Computed example of a mutant assay.
Amino acid sequence: MDLRTRGRLLAEGYSERELRRMLRTGELCPVRPGAYVFGGAPPDLIARHLLQVRAACEQLSGHAVVSHASAAVVHGVALWAVPLDHVHVTRSRRSSGARRGRRVHVHCAALDADEVVMVDGLRVTSVERTLVDLARTVPFEQAVVAADSALHRHLTNRAALDLASARRSRLPGMPAARRALAFADARSASPGESRSRVVIARAGLPVPVLQWEVRTTSGLFVGRVDFGWPELRTVGEFDGRVKYGRELRPGRDPVEVLYEEKCREDELRAEDLGMVRWGWVDLDRFAPVAQRLRDRYRPC
């Protein structure tokens, strides 16, 4: 969407009266005071936040660098349960100047030159610094979702993430950040799978093999599962709607997709594998799922 400031609209020949009318009729939608887009705001929370980031950067000094959750949005890192009610920016200062306003949260921290990158015309903290700052300031589960996403999408790699974590070891919140970043795994393909890894660990279950490729004794490929316990002959699948959405290519019948998934599950069971499925609602109360997994574990 084309972001327009009030000054630009006036310079283009719109009058104050026209602007008031367009706001009343919905032809013009406010993003923040003095910044607008034509038509309605996008329904997607991430897209709206990106507009708010751009609007804030139009009005902030050039020393402000988009950071924390806002930088994650700019980089395309998946977030879960991270508030996007403020635009986060960092000024490269060690202490003075930090503030939390109604719409913008200004952080102050040292930023080296290589920790600032340009993305679509915005000055943004690097992916690695963004993940470090997020992991310092959000709960463990939310930090893992973001770090998994960045690794899975090849926005960074394990070596770079470990280096960034060690580099900023003296920042507040780094002990918790190091734990979350160390737990991150590129094989987690979605926020649901990332959250599943966290609750599996909290339940005290054995560490699963992620994206386990199941094969017959003769080596034929049967299928890939989200979580596998090969020595316990058990597989686990997180059933999120996004997964089936990926399978539903244009022109495909939803019934066909579900039938194929059933056939896949039958083939897995034919390999003497116990299967347990869970969804979003189960992640907040995982004990029954954990017990079902324990009940199906069958040591080789």
Rank of each mutant, 00 (worst) to 15 (best):
D2L: 14
T5Y: 01
R6S: 10
G7I: 09
G13A: 10
Y14T: 01
E16V: 09
E18I: 02
L19C: 01
E27Y: 13
G34H: 10
G34Q: 12
Y36V: 10
G39K: 13
D44P: 02
L45K: 09
A56P: 03
S61A: 15
S61T: 15
S70Q: 10
A71S: 14
G76Y: 06
L79M: 10
W80T: 13
L84E: 07
S95K: 12
V104Y: 00
V106D: 08
D114L: 07
G121C: 08
V127I: 13
T137K: 00
V138F: 01
E141N: 08
E141L: 09
V144L: 14
V144I: 13
D148C: 09
L163W: 05
L171I: 05
G173Q: 10
P175D: 10
A177F: 02
L181A: 01
V198W: 08
V199T: 10
R202Y: 04
P206L: 09
V207I: 11
V209H: 07
W212A: 10
T217N: 08
T217D: 14
S218F: 03
G219H: 08
L220Q: 15
L220S: 14
F221A: 05
G223K: 06
G223N: 03
V225W: 06
E231K: 03
G236N: 06
G236W: 03
V242H: 12
R249P: 02
P250G: 11
P254W: 09
V257S: 03
E265P: 04
E267K: 13
D272L: 11
D272A: 13
L273F: 12
G279V: 14
W280Q: 11
D282T: 07
R285F: 11
F286M: 13
Q291Y: 05
R294P: 07
